[in-house]
Simulated scan of single mutants.
Amino acid sequence: MNKLRALLAANQKRGSFRAEANTIYLYDMIVADEFEAEWWGGISPAGFIAQLKAMKGDVAIRINSPGGDVFGAVAICQAMREYDGAITVHVDGYAASAASVIAVAAPKVIMAPGSFMMIHNAWTVAIGNVDDMMATAELLDKVDGSIAESYATKSGKEAAVFRDYMAKETWFTASEAVDVGIADAVAEDKPKATAKWDMSAFAAAPKLPEPPAVDNQNTEDHVSQRVRQHAARMLERAA
Rank of each mutant, 00 (worst) to 15 (best):
M1I: 00
K3N: 07
L4D: 02
R5I: 00
A6Y: 07
L8Y: 06
A9P: 12
R14K: 04
R14M: 04
G15F: 05
A19H: 07
E20Q: 11
E20G: 06
I24H: 09
L26W: 10
I30H: 06
A32S: 07
A32F: 09
E34G: 06
A37G: 08
A37M: 06
A37F: 13
E38T: 12
W39S: 15
W40D: 15
P45H: 09
A46I: 03
A46H: 09
F48L: 02
I49H: 07
A50V: 09
Q51H: 13
K53A: 13
M55L: 05
K56L: 13
G57A: 02
R62W: 00
S65M: 08
P66M: 00
G67V: 02
G68Y: 01
F71W: 11
I76M: 12
I76R: 08
Q78M: 05
A79Y: 06
A79D: 02
A79K: 05
E82S: 12
E82I: 08
I87G: 05
T88L: 09
G93E: 02
Y94N: 04
A95E: 03
S97M: 11
V101H: 14
A103G: 04
P107S: 03
V109H: 03
M111F: 01
P113D: 03
G114H: 08
M118K: 14
I119W: 10
I119T: 05
H120P: 14
N121A: 10
N121S: 12
W123D: 01
W123Q: 07
V125T: 13
N129Y: 04
D131A: 14
D131H: 13
D132F: 06
M134Y: 11
A137I: 07
E138G: 14
L140F: 04
D144L: 05
S146F: 13
E149I: 03
Y151G: 00
K154Y: 01
S155G: 01
K157V: 07
V161P: 02
F162V: 07
R163T: 11
R163Y: 11
R163G: 09
E169L: 06
F172M: 08
F172L: 07
E176T: 08
V180T: 15
G181A: 05
D189Q: 15
A193H: 07
K196C: 11
D198H: 12
A205K: 03
K207E: 01
P211F: 05
D215T: 02
V223A: 06
S224W: 14
S224G: 13
R226E: 15
R233F: 15
M234N: 15
